[in-house]
Design a protein around this nucleic acid. Structure first.
Lengths: 248, 248
DNA sequence: TAGTGGTCTAGACCACATT
DNA sequence: ATGTGGTCTAGACCACTAT
């Protein structure tokens, strides 16, 4: 536990950094280190204020920002909690395919293959690991209402998520699995999308003609502090569905 | 001008709505009505507090939220201002194509055609206007370094943006034009993307084979209060570029 | 009833930009 | 020197939840 007045003491030496930022750092540190795990309740604002040696208003300001960011949530009259995947918009933050009839369902996933390997240059760059570092590669086929719609390749660092899928069968929702099985929580992602023609392999799996236009989504997902967790490339048949984006 | 203590008076009758939300509504109202136009400086927090009959802290809380939303920005020691298109991330909020070499340039636009017409059902739905209401339709070709890359169709309500492009030649950056010429500021957008095959028309313009995979971006842009401003469908050659998305 | 978060205030003091 | 936003405090009171 941090000693009483911890922030205030540090602050004397760094007059340029606001107190609320130092409180922010301390709280994030505990989240990263799982001192407070997803689902757990934080101490009350008053307690945190006492512990850090700042006013309740300052703690509150920090918590407000973390809540806005989706890392924490509050229940009035109860307390402040660490968000879990389900609390977050996660399911629909990272899953944005919508059928043309407006339905938005979580697709089933069928594992096509899994292997251990060594990171090539591209994988190393995306995952911010060394070339040759151990990685786990997965290939999956995703189905909506029994119809194959997406082919995806997933690569993760085996150091961060050791033996992914060797202990238990992989669930449809990998991010949730990373969180409960490895205490690694995805909080953001960068994607680039483009249109490509179906390769013979895609075509066979998706039961389409070679060259059919597919939407390719290339995504790196990050945990706190922009630590790369997963690199995923999905190729999607968008003849009956589309990919949603909100801007602003 | 609002009479002194306006918020406080209203608040007596609506104890359930927080003061900062009422202040928020009043400020947004003035933004919508262009009492404070893009680029203008707002009264100081102290003045606003006096005028609305609340404390400076409450005004500040509201301004914080509007700044976070991108509607306003502050310059320490100077004042609080209404954001303009350039202040916003606008250029890159609504323009996210990135060349494979990492370069991100504003593409030139060549007008292919413009017409006045009456809204069909789809246009009416997208723009939230009546079927048959007057609309303006534009077709443009966008070029990166002289190479045609995007074909786009734009539809706007002629009531909201009367005579678009008839007075002056249209600039590359339409959103900026909406703001300076019509005082209509785009603040958010919903997009759906999918992969499609190039139609003969697309193919001719983009100098590609019919059926070449193109990225189709279907976007409705909104002003404050989710008022639809523009419906745009872009078809992009993504063989040498991709479309960026950040999530989280 | 006790404890939590939610709202709001009044005021102190600092950092910064303009005049 | 003045006025602006930026930080921080201490405390009041309300609304909600659990017991």
């Amino acid at each position: 536990m941090a000693p009483r007045g911890e922030v205030r003491r540090l602050h004397r030496n760094r007059r340029d950094v606001p107190l609320y930022e130092m409180v922010d750092s301390l709280i994030r540190k505990r989240l990263v280190e799982n001192v407070w795990s997803p689902g757990a309740m934080l101490p009350s604002e008053i307690q945190l204020a006492r512990e850090f040696g700042v006013s309740q208003g300052t703690v509150r300001r920090t918590l407000d920002a973390l809540v806005a960011e989706g890392l924490l949530y509050r229940r009035q009259g109860v307390g402040t909690f660490v968000s879990e995947m389900e609390d977050r918009r996660s399911l629909f933050l990272f899953f944005n395919m919508v059928a043309d009839d407006g339905r938005q369902e979580m697709p089933a996933a069928r594992l096509l293959g899994a292997e251990f390997g060594q990171a090539n240059e591209e994988e190393a760059r995306r995952l911010a690991i060394a070339v040759g570092a151990p990685v786990r590669r997965l290939r999956r086929l995703r189905l909506f209402r029994e119809t194959p719609m997406i082919v995806e390749k997933v690569v993760v660092s085996d150091a961060l998520l050791p033996g992914l899928g060797t202990e238990v069968p992989l669930p449809d929702h990998l991010f949730r699995h990373y969180e409960v099985a490895y205490r690694v929580t995805v909080v953001e992602a960068d994607e680039t999308v483009r249109a490509v023609g179906a390769e013979p392999e895609d075509a066979a799996l998706l039961e389409l003609a070679v060259g059919t236009p597919l939407l390719q989504i290339d995504r790196v997902a990050y945990a706190l502090q922009r630590r790369p967790v997963e690199w995923r490339v999905s190729r999607c048949d968008t003849s009956g569905q589309s990919y949603r984006i909100h801007r602003g």
